[in-house]
């Protein structure tokens, strides 16, 4: 095709690269946040804030590029679905980074104090979320939806872990009202993680639409 179309496909590749970059950032941010909660480190928290900052910028970048392509190239069919999807999922990644920032803030508030209880289940949540993010990244890169079906199960697991943590922490709060503050924070952390997993699942359903053109819900 013409010169214009050549730069068009290059621009599409560029958007994809940016979104993949966001996925990596998100992974880094959400993992670091729980790490910071466990072993508090001022630098690590700062790192989370930087990630959040970076993801905001990237999100804006992706949006600008997508709007430019829509305005100038009038994309249709697969290209149209690709661009719409990229705009949406970059937004979702950005929101996960926001959640990571919030966890970071809780970690900062807690400081170097040991957590109320060992964060075993929280870490398992993080592991699952990271696994989900890896699958999503792979799917974006290959534009292949075959592994995305598994995300539904992983999301369910995260949901289960959340209710488990919630129940445990309720017990702590009932036992000793002094712990209510900290326990609430931990519930929030679990809640944020559960939200993150939901967002990843949402991303997955957008990806299915992008590749196959069918609108589905993964949750």
């Amino acid at each position: 095709m013409s010169e214009g179309r050549k730069s068009y496909s290059e621009s599409l590749e560029e958007v994809k690269k940016d979104v993949l970059e966001m996925a990596s950032l998100t992974e880094k941010g959400i993992c670091s946040s729980v790490e910071a909660l466990e072993n508090y480190d001022e630098e690590l928290v700062q790192h989370i804030y930087n990630v959040e900052d970076e993801s905001n910028k990237l999100n804006l970048e992706v949006e600008k590029e997508c709007m430019r392509l829509v305005a100038l190239q009038q994309p249709v069919a697969k290209d149209l679905r690709f661009i719409a999807t990229m705009m949406k999922i970059s937004d979702n990644f950005e929101r996960i980074c926001d959640l990571a920032e919030k966890i970071g803030k809780i970690a900062q508030k807690k400081g170097k104090k040991d957590p109320l209880k060992p964060l075993v289940d929280t870490n398992r949540m993080i592991d699952i979320i990271c696994e989900m993010l890896e699958i999503v990244k792979e799917a974006i890169e290959q534009e292949d939806t075959s592994d995305l079906r598994g995300l539904s199960d992983l999301d369910d697991k995260v949901d289960d872990l959340f209710s488990q943590i919630y129940n445990e922490l309720i017990v702590f709060m009932v036992k000793d009202p002094k712990d209510v503050d900290e326990a609430t924070d931990l519930v929030f952390v679990a809640r944020y993680l559960e939200r993150s997993a939901d967002l990843v699942a949402k991303i997955a359903s957008r990806l299915v639409y992008m590749v196959e053109g069918e609108r589905v819900q993964i949750k």
């Binding site: 994309p75 249709v76 069919a77 697969k78 679905r81 053109g213």
Partner: peptide, 14 residues
Amino acid sequence: FENPDKKKTEDYIT
């Protein structure tokens, strides 16, 4: 224009 059935259609319109 959103989700054509045929590869040829897609190639043409994009």
